[in-house]
């Protein structure tokens, strides 16, 4: 199995690398979920991770965001080692993370979910004798983001009462609210109705390009991935199978065989649906 890898010359922010891993590894008992993965993510690009279910994509994200600790290896953010940073600290560095499985505050309203997300990085969370309403900027930011994802009509509904597609939008709103520099999006469209997907993807693209942000995206829809990505990493059984631009990945034989089902991938006319 040939491994195609784009190698980056250096490991510092000067070369435009914002997030990188060195031989990152995570074992669950005998299972190696992430096997010595080294990747480098260029700042202000949209970098996708693809691979079949169980390839280790979610585990990889969990290692990046500090949700779980690696068995070995390192994670660098802007050249700084963040491998063992506790999970609540990574958010403060400007790394936002969304979840494949909906992970909300179910009994709180949409507005409160997003408001909490925007309050998290401010320095007002230890006021306990003033109403949260007097800190208007968090609510204003929350409403702005809710508007962006198109949930304004449901702003005061408890999160648990939303249909699945809207919960995915809420999930996205919560990661956008604190305005992170790097967004780790784990299958943001999972389980969404097909017609809602392009809308969400174009929102992600707008946020990425407009805010000059770095997005790492796990996504199963190949048309979407091929269209929006600057760079693609293909994972398979915990390992990096290939890495390259969409064109390189589409032409890569190993990927064709292992992942794209043997056939050559061709763009679909109505790409993205």
């Amino acid at each position: 199995m040939t491994v195609t890898r784009v190698t980056f010359p250096s490991k510092t922010m000067d070369n435009g690398i914002i997030l990188e891993t060195h031989k990152l590894r995570r074992e669950f008992g005998a299972l190696v979920a992430v096997a010595d993965v080294s990747i480098a993510v260029r700042a202000q690009t949209l970098h996708s991770i693809i691979g079949p279910n169980g390839a280790g994509k979610t585990t990889f994200f969990n290692l990046l965001s500090g949700n779980i600790t690696p068995t070995s290896g390192r994670v660098l953010f802007k050249g700084r080692d963040i491998t063992h940073l506790p999970v609540h600290r990574t958010a403060h560095l400007g790394i936002g993370r969304s979840f494949q499985i909906t992970n909300l505050f179910p009994n709180l309203t949409v507005l409160e979910n997003v408001r909490l997300a925007s309050q998290a990085l401010g320095h007002d969370s230890f006021h306990f004798l003033r109403s949260h309403r007097s800190f208007t900027r968090y609510e204003a930011r929350a409403r702005e983001v809710i508007e962006m994802v198109g949930l304004t009509a449901r702003a005061l509904a408890p999160a648990r009462t939303l249909p699945h597609g809207d919960q995915r939008k809420l999930e996205l709103a919560m990661i956008l609210a604190p305005d992170p520099e790097v967004l780790l999006l784990d299958e943001p469209t999972a389980g969404m109705a097909a017609e809602q997907v392009p809308e969400l993807i174009s929102l992600i693209q707008r946020v990425q390009a407009g805010g000059q942000k770095t997005v790492m995206l796990v996504e199963h829809n190949m048309n979407v991935v091929m269209r929006v990505s600057d760079m693609i990493t293909v994972m398979h059984q915990g390992e990096v199978l290939a890495e390259g631009t969409p064109d390189e990945i589409a032409a890569n034989e190993a990927v064709q065989n292992a992942y794209l089902g043997g056939g050559v991938w061709r763009p679909v006319a109505n790409g993205g649906k």
Binding site: L108, H132, R133
Partner: peptide
């Protein structure tokens, strides 16, 4: 007042 404060809201989020 506490429950309505930024701190209290995070306590509720912690419970949730």
């Amino acid at each position: 007042r506490f429950v309505d404060s930024p701190t209290g809201r995070v306590c509720i989020a912690t419970r949730e």
